[in-house]
């Protein structure tokens, strides 16, 4: 199977500064100021055509950072990242220009993704039909509800025909019928052999849709494999985690954070 996404030792480091003076010194001087924080540490995994990979993990484990890196929005600090094909990210707050109308946003987004005028003309009716916004398509986006915005964002992202689709919590807004429509579309993508990354806190949605799972814990891969194998372990961990006393939870988190600061 052709590999579409390969990550080798991908690390994303952020800097934590105590005040703005430190930040400025860090930019200007070659010496390093501020504390390191590893949002992702030595991530290794591969995904092939037709894979549907779910990212699981508790809050702050780096799921969104990883999806942003795969979508090409933020660059990794170090490590090797190979992406074969066009990526599209669907997130709740898809970057839309609220002053412009829905239709203008479609054109603008497609332009930025590098489509020509003729291609946009062809895509536009599909996107409008999928978004199903009725008359609102010619109204400025600032008058949209959050569900309408995410529908528009989703419609644009799926209709540009990406090879790799990253869905970050985008199905949690919008009503049931739209979620069904999206899942149908995603199943269609799956059948076409596209790679899909799926992030959701809904375990049932994960189980229904994903084949593989990548379990992240504080910036590191804890487990990667078939969903039938990983999910029970994750659920067991969640149960344990929930059962921990506040004190235990804190020590667990502190140890993890220490590791993320690169001190362990």
């Amino acid at each position: 199977m052709a590999k579409t996404v390969v990550l080798r030792n991908v690390t994303k480091k952020y800097k934590l500064y105590e005040d703005s003076k430190e930040k400025l010194l860090d930019i200007v001087l070659p010496k390093s100021f501020g504390e390191d924080f590893y949002a992702l540490q030595n991530i290794n995994f591969e995904a092939a055509k037709g894979d549907v990979v779910g990212f699981i993990g508790i809050n702050g484990s780096g799921k969104s950072t990883l999806s942003n890196i795969i979508a090409g929005i933020i660059p990794p600090t170090s490590g090797e990242l190979k992406i074969n094909g066009k990526t599209a990210l669907i997130a709740v707050n898809a970057g839309l220009n609220t002053q412009l109308t829905g239709r203008e946003n479609i054109e603008l987004k497609c332009l930025m993704l590098g489509f020509s005028q003729a291609e946009i003309k062809k895509l536009e009716p599909h996107i409008i039909e999928f978004a199903d916004l009725g008359k609102f398509i010619d109204q400025p986006v600032k008058s949209y509800s959050s569900g309408m915005k995410s529908r528009l964002g989703f419609a644009i992202s799926v209709n540009i025909d990406p090879d790799i689709l990253v869905i970050d919590e985008a199905l949690s807004v919008g009503d049931q019928t739209f979620a069904e429509k999206c899942l149908d579309k995603m199943n269609e993508f799956k059948a076409h052999g596209k790679t899909i990354f799926f992030i959701s806190h809904s375990i049932s949605q994960m189980k229904r849709f994903c084949e593989k799972a990548l379990w992240l814990e504080y910036g590191k891969v804890r487990d990667f494999g078939l969903i039938e194998e990983v999910m029970p372990r994750y659920e067991k961990f969640l149960k344990q985690y929930k059962a921990m006393s506040l004190e235990e939870k804190r020590t667990f988190r502190e140890a993890a954070i220490k590791e993320q600061m690169g001190q362990a």
Binding site: G72, I73, P75, L89, G95, N97
Partner: peptide, 9 residues
């Protein structure tokens, strides 16, 4: 930059 949000741009 938020709107552009693609390194390839």
């Amino acid at each position: 930059i938020k709107m552009i949000s693609k390194m390839s741009f």
